[in-house]
């Protein structure tokens, strides 16, 4: 069977950033590191385990964005994806619906048996692209999946999705299907040296977004800002020792220590 894994690129969460003059664009510092979305590592690992069990014949990784997005695809190749596809767009804000339309258009041509995605993007926090691809391709899906098994000669996938800490919800989905995995479904591997070397020279296939049936933005950002801090917050300042003394005093005053 053939698997597609949807990969997103995110900026390191701790990198400094500024808001541009337009008041609605966040610009990370030039030295900020970009990498694969952590949730997508779990999706890649799930695909690789299917390959190792002889179930998956081919694994393609796909990402939507500018040339800079290849950093995430390179990581997918290092982990063990066979091919990587960049759906190249200009430097525009991409909503989940825009990404889903492009990936669905690309996937419709290839006819994948299984499309895997991470549950959400750490950066965008939408958790939407997976289910949207399913709706566009008119195939079933499940999100927050913590266990998946293929059965019936790979005609169906049996999934457990997370409802809360103590409850899961179980489905059998006919393939093709989209499965968006929750973090913790597996332990994503570190790329082996041989795979890193192989990935370094491998070509990433590029499809221009303008050649696919995309969608216009479904929403517009009108402002970004720092959320208001909660009331009653006190930052304890000073040298490290002074901060320790400050916290000690703070806890003491409240009879907590």
């Amino acid at each position: 069977m053939k698997i597609l894994v949807c990969i997103d690129r995110v900026c390191d969460g701790e990198a400094p950033f500024t808001v541009e003059g337009d008041g609605r664009t966040i610009r990370p510092a030039d030295q900020a590191a970009w990498r694969m979305n952590r949730y997508d590592e779990f999706a890649m690992e799930e695909a690789l385990q299917l390959k190792e069990r002889g179930i998956a014949a081919g694994i393609d990784a796909v990402s939507v964005g500018t040339d800079a997005t290849t950093v995430a695809l390179r990581k997918a190749l290092e982990m063990g994806a066979h091919d990587a596809v960049l759906i190249r767009t200009g430097e525009v804000h991409l909503t989940p619906a825009m990404k889903a339309h492009l990936i669905a258009a690309m996937a419709a041509d290839v006819r994948y048996d299984l499309i895997l995605a991470g549950m959400t993007s750490e950066q965008g926090l939408n958790a939407a692209v997976g289910p949207m691809i399913a709706a566009l391709l008119k195939i079933p899906h499940a999100t927050a999946v913590l266990k998946m098994d293929l059965e019936d000669d790979c005609r169906r996938v049996r999934v457990q999705r997370e409802l809360d800490a103590e409850t899961r919800e179980c489905f059998r989905l006919s393939l093709p299907a989209v499965v968006a995995v929750q973090s913790g479904i597996n332990r994503p591997r570190y790329p082996s040296l041989s795979n890193v070397l192989r990935a370094r020279d491998q070509e990433i296939r590029i499809i221009n977004a303008s050649d696919l049936a995309g969608a216009a933005p479904d929403q517009e950002i009108v402002a970004v800002r720092k959320p208001r801090a909660g009331t009653g917050f006190m930052e304890i300042q000073g040298s490290t020792v002074e901060k320790a003394e400050g916290l000690y005093a703070w806890l003491h005053e409240r009879s907590l220590l």
Binding site: T95, P96, A97, A100, L125, N126, A127, A128, V129, G130, P131, M132, A134, A135, L136, H141, A142, T143, A144, R161, E162, L163, D164, E169, D218, Q219
Partner: peptide, 22 residues
């Protein structure tokens, strides 16, 4: 919620609506 988050983006695409989450 877990179920709402599973349903909402799927429904949005089915009816060609915008999806604004969280």
């Amino acid at each position: 919620t877990s179920r709402g988050g599973d349903l909402a983006p799927y429904l949005a695409m089915r009816i060609s609506a915008a999806y604004i989450s969280v």
